[in-house]
Design a protein around this nucleic acid. Structure first.
Lengths: 144, 144
DNA sequence: CCTTGATAGTTTATTCTGTAAACTAATTTT
DNA sequence: AAAATTAGTTTACAGAATAAACTATCAAGG
């Protein structure tokens, strides 16, 4: 077998390579706002959950990453003035994450950038095929 | 929209999260041989191209990464005694990468680990759906 | 009430992946 | 023979991820 065939047929390789490609596209799109890809994800998540304030623990759950990783990312966003940590009145150990106005603006940019890419994807392979593909990927992910 | 829906419907997010999940699975499987995911990829690539020896530039092309990144990875594999750089007789600037016996053994482990995961994927979503999904992903990747 | 254990987050240290830019050496091109 | 290109390395750095130790708070059982 040639490596090209293997790379195409092996899910691990194909998905990894595609993810790296998309990651770099996303990074490029977000650079204008001085955001990293992960920061973009987090801003978007908080934006969509509003007005219910997300907590770091929920972010960790949603993205499948460690508390430490979330903490770093949130600190960075706070340092950039894009969000605020507020102590949860119901539990002083927990935080509620709320976007500041600049953070909302950035979130909208991120969403627009991703929508644009998604539209291009849909144009290329069709809306149905894209949805089907994502459904399959979710199933595979849920397998472990 | 809730963040869960967005994460599922947005290709960038869904693929990124799946890739991270699979990456961590792969990393786990390769740890026994003291290999990183990327090292596993590179060993496999060289293995499949044998007896034609791969060059660093071809690796960079195949995996879509920079020459520097390939160089580091190859250095690490060479330090672990898994492969050898040989100067290309046709061009003294280029190298040919050849697996040493220990490297072949590792490559077989990597391939086995990924085959096992692939089988589980096929059992979960079906061979056809998996192939269809990878085909779509390749199309999206080729778009940019 | 108070100890014990669990939970939420942070911090520190480290690894892996990836890039950019400067560099060496060999090969083409002109 | 000089200039430009190419192959690969090296240096320096950033981003993403983890693990483990730590702080502070909360919850439960005696």
């Amino acid at each position: 077998m040639r490596i090209d065939a293997f790379l195409s047929e092996s899910p691990m390789f194909a998905i990894n390579r595609a993810a790296r490609r998309f990651n770099s596209l996303a990074t490029e799109a977000l650079a204008a706002d001085g955001l990293t890809f992960l920061e973009g994800l987090v801003l978007t998540a908080i934006f969509f959950e509003a007005p219910t304030p997300l907590k770091p623990s929920e972010l960790a759950e949603t993205f499948g990453m460690t508390r430490g990783n979330v903490s770093h990312c949130v600190s960075s966003l706070e340092a950039k003035g894009l969000l605020q940590r507020k102590i949860d009145p119901a539990d002083a150990r927990a935080y509620q994450l709320a976007l500041k106005p600049a953070g909302k603006k950035c979130a909208l940019h991120v969403i627009a950038a991703f929508d644009k890419l998604q539209k291009e994807f849909e144009r290329e392979v069709g809306k149905t095929a894209l949805a089907e593909t994502l459904k399959t990927i979710r199933k595979l992910e849920a397998l472990f």
